[in-house]
Design a protein around this nucleic acid. Sequence first.
DNA 1: GGGAGGATGGAT
DNA 2: TCCATCCTCCCA
Length: 179
Amino acid sequence: MGVMADPGQLLGEEFLKRPVLEVAPELLGCYLCRELDGKILRWRITEVEAYDGPEDKACHAHKGRTGRTEVMFGPAGHWYVYFCYGIHWLLNIVTGPEDYPAAVLIRGAGEISGPARLTKALSITGELNRRMAVPECGLWIEAGEILDRAHILTTPRIGVDYAGPDWSRRPYRFLLRES
DNA sequence: GGGAGGATGGAT
DNA sequence: TCCATCCTCCCA
């Protein structure tokens, strides 16, 4: 068994510091929580992708430690938010042990499908980069019900062909079958 | 200091 | 299929 997390419980470092391929599918059904204008939104996570360490050619950290990727080398449970294609913000949660760069890209939650649309809908920008995922910063994750593996669909990741077939074809994308 | 490229999405 | 539009990284 992995780390126990009761529904509604804040997902912290203990839960997230495990290997990213273990954590990523378990984030499905959990709640992405955002406080905006004094109100708290809790959106069920429906789609994620795993980015797994220096060997993973699709992972930003595979070229080493840089200013941008530094946060992925840090302790689990921090946000990695980066700017893409000159327009979009993309949201990741850092996972795995310290000094091992890995993160989960959150691609869908609630009724929103698409990583850039999600950040836009929740007003998430680079201001949250490197912040710890706790209520104090206005963005955190709470545990959901444990899902049966049969509810989870697994596919290759989106938009990472540049990483070459060995990596782009790996089944590192997880989504709820019902979504 | 310059240039290339990118974990997307919306319009054509 | 095109492209908006800019941050980061690498190289000079």
